[in-house]
Design a protein around this nucleic acid. Structure first.
Lengths: 241, 241
DNA sequence: CGATGCGTTGATAACTTTCAAATTTAGTGG
DNA sequence: CCACTAAATTTGAAAGTTATCAACGCATCG
């Protein structure tokens, strides 16, 4: 009962950051968590108060249990948050794309670790500074609250996702990604199959097979392993609920 | 692929509230979400400002999408929050026992419905009134924030739970319930097998079989279907991580 | 009693994982 | 630029897990 791939997990999955990969070309994806970009004062404030830091692919931005002193916004590239489970498996909390704000824990410690999925630039803002501004500027406080609220909603959807079948999970994931994508029907995946599997609570093999199935069923096309074209959105939507 | 039990779901699972059942005897369980009871100002404030309302078993406290104008605290009995999925399945969000505060949505609409699992008394407080007090009394605001934070953590644990095997889910559920129980090793379940199944994303048959398995393995005893004695806590804990 | 709802158990089918191998892709060095 | 190596992805076959369908037991209630 899940004695499973501790070796595979530890040895293969979390090896040293491998070779470089071109930074994702996606310009400004619609964020899942971040304030929408045209929006507002929060974005401006963060740009004013923050510093942009560049990380190579596979770098750790923050670790689990570290004090949550900063708030982050992806400028370019991509970040995944994750947690290593007792049995060596990895559960991914979220994928953060350009425009997304992350590291917004309600406590004072990070509950997840985070690392880059590609060469990534991140805007870093001191939490205390942002809180100070929020104390003075209600619209900032409101935006921060809205962010937290959106995260809660996302977790709620996530819970609903995890009780569904593999096909539904993968289909939902693709639709979700496409909604964050600039081109509505083509999804450029910044993450590996292993990342997707750990996000959906499946194995890479099941993810791969499911994608093959969706392709055979003409719901999607997979021109390259990291690019997926949604061919039959209604059918994919239908697998959600 | 989950064409499944729409009939069973709709017809059997959500019929009219069935016969009465003695209100749970559990006096004051340790709450999972609520402020701890010995605590504080929030509890006092709610008691001062609130009204106690009694519901029969199976009554709806609030419905999905309804405006979230009130905050609730279970006085006696028990409440489940849930959502009906597109395919007729039901996902349970949480079980609230005496002392627990619920209905604390971050938005202005409820994202889940809620109904009583037994005859239940609930303390109801107008959200606007509580917010007004929170504006003046920082300790109240803090307690409310802590509540939200705890809910986020709970959802996080929930996500971790849902990627595990049936045995792990049930074991984790029992441990979680026992930690909220006044008697440390005996758990009085206020909910049906169907409730547990919908909470864990399993079927009633799997829940039942898993409980039988845990009993055969001498990890638990099941004197009556609603009462479970944890016999081997270390073994049960070990199934978590 | 006989009906009804809930929980348990059994047999089978469907789904997902595991283990293994083939295939493709990406990076490296000549 | 091409061949070579390592990594990622896909595919296959078998095993394991969970759901489904069906039957049964056991209370409660009229």
């Amino acid at each position: 009962m899940l004695t499973q791939t501790v070796v595979r997990s530890a040895a293969l999955r979390f090896g040293p950051p491998s070779r470089m990969v071109p930074v994702m070309p996606r310009a400004e994806a619609r964020p899942a968590f971040g304030a929408s970009d045209r929006a507002g004062s929060l974005d401006r404030t963060m740009r004013l108060m923050g510093t942009v830091i560049s990380y190579p692919r596979g770098a750790e931005v923050f670790g689990e249990e570290e004090p949550a002193d900063y708030i982050y916004k992806v400028v370019s590239g991509g970040v995944r948050t994750y947690k290593i489970l007792g049995d060596g498996r990895r559960q991914i909390g979220a994928f953060h794309l350009p425009g997304d704000i992350f590291g917004l824990e309600s406590g004072d410690k990070h509950r997840l670790s985070s690392e880059t999925m590609a060469d990534t630039r991140v805007l870093v803002v001191k939490r205390s500074a942002l809180n100070a501004v929020a104390g003075r500027d209600a619209s900032i406080a409101q935006e921060l609250l809205a962010l937290t609220s959106r995260q809660l909603e996302h977790m709620q959807r996530r819970i609903l996702l995890l009780v569904k079948s593999a096909r539904e999970r993968v289909a939902t994931f693709l639709v979700e990604m496409s909604e964050r994508s600039p081109q509505s029907n083509t999804v450029e995946l910044p993450m590996s199959r292993q990342d997707i599997a750990d996000y959906l609570g499946l194995t890479i093999e099941t993810v791969s097979r499911t994608l093959s199935y969706l392709q055979c069923s003409a719901m999607i096309e997979v021109p390259t392993s990291r690019r997926i074209v949604l061919r039959d959105r209604p059918a994919l939507d239908h697998m959600n609920g």
